[in-house]
Write a protein that binds this DNA or RNA. Structure first.
Ligand SMILES: [Mn+2]
Ligand SMILES: [Mn+2]
Ligand SMILES: [Zn+2]
Ligand SMILES: [Zn+2]
Lengths: 136, 136
DNA sequence: AAGTAAATGCAAAAGTTTTGCATTCGTATG
DNA sequence: CATACGAATGCAAAACTTTTGCATTTACTT
């Protein structure tokens, strides 16, 4: 497995402490995180990275294709991994968001894109509803 | 086709002028709209509905299942229609967002939900990339 | 027509994201 | 290794978005 620094290097990014910290959090997270999430997560372990800097780092990561941001803005983001498709299961009750990968769905979406003359660089799906534990 | 007022009634909502205006805009739009979009759209035709009110109306519409809001917050929304699946094609270059319906994708996502023990009430997919006219 | 609860607008508060600028840090070069 | 330069960072403030409180108006019931 590639080191954090090597990943930054591969993507043509300077190897700074803040970037290593943010990238590490993203890589270890099992679910998408917002800028605030990342900031809070680091603060909790006394590794402070200014929130403004987190915004700027994520923008950079996105520019080079290291992460993707989701629908209607830039709130959620997660590492692209192995072309797996990103499906978010978002519970309206408790707020938990889980991430799923599904290769087949991915292919289906690519067909839709082709049909529409659209050229996707990434994609995200979200199911909104109730998670197992909140389903009364 | 049902009248605007009848739709409100069906969903147990009071039939107010502001709600009729907002609902009409949503129904006539071919793409998802933000609260600000709706407000601006109405303002342009001199039918002012306070932006705060637009927020509150959309929240109500959502409560009763008239619309759904998308990923990572509440920015985009569009009318649920005939169980068609909502696929957004979002151009990173020019910002245009188009909406697509795809029944098969919808079913596939339902299977994923079942597998994960998740109970979806709505869902949205987004393809991020370049639209036909921005593809250099 | 009157009464009541719900919806609206306005002003302000709270929260989020972006910007400007001075300082620090990373990398290339000699 | 020292230096020089551009890139990245932190802080403060501006800009923008969303929520809240409250007085007034509106829609529906009786
Ligand atoms: Mn995919
Ligand atoms: Mn669907
Ligand atoms: Zn839940
Ligand atoms: Zn475009």
């Amino acid at each position: 497995m590639k080191s954090i620094s090597a990943i930054l290097d591969t993507h043509g990014l300077r190897d700074t402490q803040s970037r290593r910290l943010v990238l590490k959090v993203l890589m270890q997270s099992k679910k998408p995180l917002s800028q605030k999430d990342i900031h809070a997560c680091l603060a909790k372990e006394d590794r402070v990275v200014n929130l403004v800097t987190v915004y700027r780092i994520l923008e950079k990561f996105r520019d080079v294709g290291l992460i993707h941001h989701s629908a209607g803005g830039v709130v959620f983001c997660s590492l692209e991994q192995a072309d797996g498709h990103h499906v978010l299961l978002s519970c309206e009750e408790c707020g938990v968001i889980e991430e799923y990968c599904d290769e087949e769905l991915c292919k289906h979406e690519d067909r839709i894109a082709k049909r529409a003359g659209f050229f996707p660089t990434s994609h995200v799906s979200e199911l909104i509803g109730r998670c197992a534990s909140c389903h009364f």
